[in-house]
């Protein structure tokens, strides 16, 4: 659905995006992560044709954005950076204005999008009376009007309260599941990305430093969380095991253990059971996206001069 090939961009001679190669298949929710100035907005701006690349190109659904922008983004909806509206006009009039610049959208489609984002009671009110969350929802309605196959969401949960964040997440997942929309999701809220996205790309200083599934990447040699009813017995087993590292976490009798590569976790578990440690929890620790993200940044900084 999305293909970026050797896409690069500089501003005033300063590279904002080094040659970027990225592919997002149809039906995927792809998370784009990175700190401020990492190049996320530049990449999205290039994808939407707001910016002209210095080299390379972007394709949506096989259509080259830079040579046929009209066809390429025809079925693309976007919330790009902070949504802006005409505050002195109603929500409905704003939607109408944005839609009519590109194509005639039937009334039923407006109603569907407005209902989906839950603004049907307030759509006739002026936007200046809307809360931040309502503006975000209006922006989502605007993005849904072209019946998009691709939805580009840049910080869609920005400024929302916890309930709003939850609603936005559920809506995004529903759009992906029920309408098969491909979604490019850029956010600083790692917990949201963790819950929504199938795969992620991490940008750092204009470089794509990781692309893939953070879950799969940490599968091998992943630390295990151990909780034992008899901590002293468990500790004896752990101390006597060469190459094993055990870090106490949580309450007494709870460790994060990383066995040596040639020491299968199943053997350790068997030895703990044999020693009468009364193991009541032994499972691979699910890595948090935050830990994964920070680790990738540390790795990159270490390797880069």
């Amino acid at each position: 659905m999305i293909e970026l090939r050797d896409l690069k961009k500089s501003f005033g001679g300063r590279p904002a995006l080094h040659p970027l190669n990225l592919g997002v298949p149809r039906g995927e929710i792809f998370g784009l992560l990175g700190h401020n100035g990492a190049g996320k907005s530049t990449a999205i701006g290039l994808l939407l044709g707001h910016l002209a690349p210095d080299g390379g190109g972007a394709w949506i659904n096989g259509i080259h954005v830079q040579t046929d922008r009209f066809a390429a983004i025809r079925r693309t909806g976007a919330i790009f950076e902070t949504p802006a509206f005409y505050p002195y006009l109603s929500g409905y009039r704003n939607l109408r204005i944005f839609a009519d610049y590109s194509e005639r959208v039937p009334l039923a489609k407006f109603e569907e999008a407005i209902t989906l984002v839950g603004l049907d009671q307030r759509i006739g009110d002026k936007v200046k009376t809307y809360s931040h969350g309502m503006r975000q929802r209006l922006a989502l309605a605007q993005a849904l009007l072209p019946e998009p196959e691709l939805l580009i969401l840049d910080e869609p949960s920005d400024g929302l309260d916890p309930e709003g964040i939850h609603e936005m997440r559920v809506t995004i997942q529903r759009l992906n599941r029920e309408k098969g929309m491909t979604i490019l999701f850029a956010s600083h809220l790692l917990s949201e990305v963790e819950q929504i996205c199938h795969r992620i790309g991490i940008l750092f200083a204009g470089n794509l430093i990781f692309c893939g599934s953070w879950r799969g990447d940490n599968g091998r040699g992943r630390p295990h969380r151990l909780r034992a009813g008899k901590p002293a017995r468990a500790e004896t087993v752990l101390r006597g095991r060469p190459g094993l590292s055990a870090e106490p976490v949580g309450g007494p009798g709870e460790w994060l253990v990383s066995p040596a590569p040639d020491d299968p976790p199943a053997r350790l578990l068997a030895d703990l059971a044999a020693a009468g440690a009364e193991v009541d929890w032994f499972a691979p620790e699910e890595p948090s996206l935050e830990a994964f993200y920070l680790e990738k940044l540390r790795d990159w900084r270490r390797r880069s001069p």
């Binding site: 044709g49 009209f70 839609a99 590109s102």
Partner: peptide, 18 residues
Amino acid sequence: EDGTMRMILNRPVPRAQL
């Protein structure tokens, strides 16, 4: 400046026509 132009250009609008 207000950002509404960015919203408009999110759609396939020929700039010359706009």
